[in-house]
Nucleic acid binder design. Structure first.
Length: 482
RNA sequence: GGCGCGGUGGCGGAAUGGCUACGCAGCGGAUUGCAAAUCCGUCUAUACCGGUUCGAUUCCGGUCCGCGCCUCCA
């Protein structure tokens, strides 16, 4: 079976046919680096990481690019607020981003182009668009002229009249048409800027992706991905720019968009106080990057997914089960079962793939081949990759629950009570693997002496810190994080 | 106002014109110093109203509910 992809452009599943079967190209919109990435930002990262794993399995060569937007008004604001240099901010958060995503077993892409490295290309494309009559200069701004092209709105399925009727933002004075968007804008002296034929300024947001793709891949790539919210206007505008700059050549043949993420059933937003960053989660759930990854993959990527503390616990249980089954198993060179791969080839059907993993897990109780297949397939999925889960080093950390919602819906005897606020809970994890091992030894000694009271004390003491002891048939004791 | 998505068991989450995956949780039993794991058995669902059909959860129409986007946004 070959890969099938739901294409936002055609609103249907299509057989994937790369331009060059020996070299697949994929570009995913990356972060604007001025803050910690939240779980919602992590969803496309994990989803497309999995897609790239699949592409690498099925095709000879894959080049995966994910950009970093390091020039943007939000970054400028963050710099002004904090007094820190822009370059410090962007470097810092880009580093944190790649570290946080790596903790979710989402490795770095092949290419990580930064917007500020493409200023020349952006100026060149802007000039070309002006020359071709698709852009104009007005009050120091350069704008793309949407009425200069046909089929604008192809990707998002919008008609211009509809958009104008519902526009909730005042049309800027320098726009000839309400739908026109910025290619280049002027910078004041205290704002970062680059010299251009239109004066000192900086690029508009949409331009960088078009230029990076052109520079690294050429006119057309195979797959372009990102979150649902990027369909309009970001991707629509990328398409418009690139098509006009490239004599109508499509920017990408397949457009893939992941759905939204909610937190504890509610939309994540700063005002609700349920804005949860990957960084905080990794503090609250140390060593559980895989568990978070699994949560993000339980739902199909185009469906909404709810991220909750309970969901993490379920994922942990699932993973612990698989870890136990594959403890000490070597999956080197094992073929990944086709049923698993085929699930993924069907537009990345992760729920189906997970059910295949569970079928393998069932078999693995009695079958060593299934054990190795389970490990290989799970590794492919990006889990079960942490070396020695049983030996996890739990750092001493005090983390605050960041998921506190201002309005927590609590059901009491069928009545829905709206609580105004839930107090944050703070807690401490105060065990490292060394002290755990020591306690296990002490317990083994106690068991030998039939001092079961002390043995049970140690068990419950550790359990309070989410460490669960498993006594083996051979008298050894392993532990896992709950 | 325009465009779009979704409502499946206690929870997560699939699939299908006829027997409704998979996981978690629950229950009964075997096993166990305790606990877990494992094994056997077992309970629970397709928002509502019509239509098409021998038969719909699946197709069609409507209702209700929830959600998203409409130039900040993964």
């Amino acid at each position: 079976m070959s890969l099938r992809i739901y294409n936002t452009l055609t609103k249907g599943k299509e057989d994937f046919q790369p331009i060059n079967p020996d070299h697949v190209t994929i570009y995913v919109c990356g972060p604007t680096v001025y803050n910690y990435a939240h779980v919602g930002n992590a969803r496309p990262v994990v989803v497309f990481d999995l897609l790239v794993r699949l592409l690498r399995h099925d095709y000879k060569k894959v080049t995966y690019a994910r950009n970093i937007t390091d020039i943007d008004d939000k970054i400028i604001e963050a710099a002004q607020d904090s007094g820190e240099a822009i370059s410090n901010i962007t470097r810092k958060y880009a580093d944190i981003y790649s570290a946080d995503m790596a903790a979710l077993n989402a490795g770095p892409p092949d290419l990580t182009p930064k917007a500020t490295d493409y200023i020349d290309q952006m100026i060149t494309m802007t000039a070309a668009l002006i020359e071709k009559g698709h852009a104009y200069e007005q009050d120091g701004h350069v704008l793309f002229s949407v009425p200069s092209i046909e089929n604008y709105g192809e990707l998002s399925g919008r008609k211009q009249e509809d958009m104008i009727a519902g526009a909730r933002v005042d049309v800027a004075s320098y726009k000839k048409d309400a739908a026109d968007f910025i290619l280049w804008k002027p910078s004041t002296n205290d704002q970062p800027g680059w010299d251009s034929p239109w004066g000192r300024g900086r690029p508009g947001w949409h331009l960088e992706c078009s230029c990076m793709i052109e520079d690294n891949f050429g006119k057309t790539i195979d797959i372009h991905g990102g979150g649902l919210d990027l369909i309009f206007p970001h991707h629509e505008n990328e398409i418009a720019q690139s098509r006009c700059a490239h004599e109508g050549a499509p920017l990408a043949n397949y457009w893939m968009h992941n759905g939204y993420l909610t937190v504890e059933g509610e939309k994540m937003s700063k005002s609700l106080g349920n804005f949860v960053t990957v960084h905080d989660l990794l503090e609250e759930f140390p060593g559980k990057g895989e568990d978070i990854r699994l949560c993000l993959l339980t739902a199909h990527y185009r469906q909404p997914v709810d991220f909750s503390r309970d969901g993490i616990h379920q994922a942990t249980k699932q993973l612990n089960h698989w870890y136990r089954l594959t403890d000490g198993v070597d999956s080197e060179g094992v073929e990944i079962p086709e049923s698993f791969l085929n699930a993924l080839r069907n537009d990345l059907d992760t729920p189906k793939a997970l059910s295949v993993l569970n079928v393998l897990a069932k078999k693995a109780e009695k079958d060593n081949t299934a054990k190795r297949q389970l490990k290989a397939a799970a590794n492919f999925f990006g889990v079960l990759e942490q070396r020695g889960r049983f030996d996890l080093n739990i750092k001493t950390t005090t983390a605050r629950l960041k998921l506190k919602a201002h309005k927590a819906r609590v059901t009491t005897l069928g009545t829905v009570v709206e609580k105004d606020s839930v107090n944050p809970i703070s807690y401490t994890k105060s065990y490292d693997s060394e002290s755990v091992e020591k306690l296990i030894e002490e317990r083994a000694e106690a068991k030998k002496n039939k001092d079961f009271k002390r043995a049970d004390e140690i068990r419950s003491q550790l359990l309070e810190n989410d460490i669960f002891l498993l006594d083996g048939a051979d008298g050894t004791t392993k532990w896992e994080q709950r």
